[in-house]
Amino acid sequence: MDVGYLSFHDEIPIFSSLLRELHINVSSLTECLYLLDGRLNQLRIFYVNIKIIHHIAPNIDMKKKLDNLRCFSLISKNETFCYSQSIVPLLHRMSNLKRLDLYLIIDENKFIDGNCLNNDIINHLPRLNHFIFNIQSRIYEYNQTDIRSNEDIQITFKTFPNHKVISCVDFFPEQNFARCHYYSYPYTMENYDKISNNFPGGLFKCVREISLFDERPFQHEFFIKISEAFPFLQKLTLENFQSQNKKSDEDDQHLSIIEYSYLTELRLLDVHDDYIEQFLFHSKSVLPNNISLSVQYDFLKRVTNHFTREQTRINSAKIKHVFLAGPGQHHLSKDFYQYFPNLQSYCFSLIT
């Protein structure tokens, strides 16, 4: 069992005729369905975070109505191939639902757009008056000529009442998938994953954790946009191996310096050197004290010029914990410890 996710079997005696509200993390859809098989027959509010959404086991009754349920929130941060086979039938059992929150990453052979949400979900929930969603729909091995534009996707949400819907469409040829990401706005989740250069902007005061990913380079202006959109950002993960457009040192002096006032954790394990510079150069970024950094050791050594570079010294001095990854164990030199004077802990992780 993974920490934070419960895993159990249907024979475990979990029954209550009094429980009205439940918030729980479970390892798979199966555990969620066991909890909805009648053993919690007065449940009205159900918030569930599911690690894996898979096909429904044949021994589970998917016809039994969940008439008492009024509020349902489903979060799953891992990709699912079972939207049509598992999620849609589950929601059809909740005919009296008044509020629905969905956070999903869906892999189908088509984009799940606003028309799909209407036909698959909304039309089957006549009492629904509050629908919050954050959905990534992905297609692998796509033909770009067959993929609809963001404008096409927006048209499918024209009939959605009460909410502004933000969307963007991305193509990632190296990993061979296309993605349509859309969400109701204002955004209410605490995390925002896989932000690309197509990020439409906005203000996300609830968000504390983000990840950035693209196969095109992120420029300095992109990070300005990110810092303005997520003013209370605490954790940032970046994945991008594309070099930034090179600027001279003189050009760097004219860049707006970005301040990350609340950042506590910075993960730069899968990045080009330029993005380590982006955060460690004091001419580009101001990091807060006591930050944790995850980075490949050889990359860090190269960017800091063997822990002697002045441009990266100020922000490096603010690092409190460092997670170093790389092939083989490394001896940390005296220069390393002097370069990170406030370091309280470090660890190595071997990668091949």
Rank of each mutant, 00 (worst) to 15 (best):
F336M: 07
S349I: 10
K320H: 07
Y337K: 05
F348E: 01
H330M: 10
T312G: 09
A325H: 04
P341Y: 06
A325R: 04
Q344W: 01
H306M: 09
T312F: 08
T308P: 08
P327D: 10
F348Y: 05
S316A: 15
K318A: 02
F348S: 02
S333I: 03
A317W: 06
K318I: 02
T352M: 13
T308E: 14
F336Y: 09
A317F: 07
F323N: 07
K320Y: 03
V322I: 15
F336T: 07
E310D: 14
R309M: 10
K320E: 03
K320F: 03
N305F: 04
T312L: 09
F348W: 07
L324A: 11
I319W: 05
G328Q: 03
R309W: 08
H331V: 13
A317D: 10
T308N: 13
T352W: 12
N305R: 05
K334I: 14
C347E: 10
L332M: 11
V322D: 00
Y339H: 13
L332K: 13
I314Y: 12
L324D: 07
H321Q: 04
A317V: 09
I314D: 13
Q329F: 06
N342Q: 09
L332R: 14
R313E: 13
Y339C: 10
G326A: 14
Q311L: 15
Y337S: 04
Q311P: 06
V322L: 04
S345N: 06
T308G: 11
F336H: 08
V322Y: 01
L324P: 11
C347V: 08
A317M: 11
T308Y: 06
L343F: 01
F323H: 12
H321T: 04
N305D: 10
P341R: 06
F340W: 01
H306R: 10
V322N: 02
G328Y: 02
Q311G: 10
Q311M: 13
F323Y: 10
Q311T: 15
L343S: 01
S349M: 08
S345P: 03
T312W: 07
L350E: 15
N305V: 06
S345D: 04
T308I: 09
S345E: 03
N342C: 03
R309L: 14
I314V: 15
Q311F: 11
A325N: 03
S316D: 09
Q329K: 09
S333H: 04
I319H: 04
V322F: 01
H306P: 04
D335R: 02
G326W: 13
N342G: 05
I319D: 02
F340A: 00
Y339V: 08
N315S: 13
T352H: 15
A325W: 02
L343D: 00
N342R: 05
H330N: 13
S316G: 14
D335E: 04
T308F: 08
I314Q: 15
T312P: 08
A325C: 03
Y339G: 09
N342W: 00
V322M: 06
S316M: 11
K318C: 02
N305P: 00
Y339F: 15
G328A: 04
Y339Q: 10
S333Q: 03
P341I: 09
C347P: 00
G326F: 14
N315R: 12
K318E: 00
I314F: 13
Y337L: 06
Q329D: 05
F307K: 02
K318L: 05
P327N: 14
H321R: 02
Q311D: 14
S316H: 08
Y346I: 05
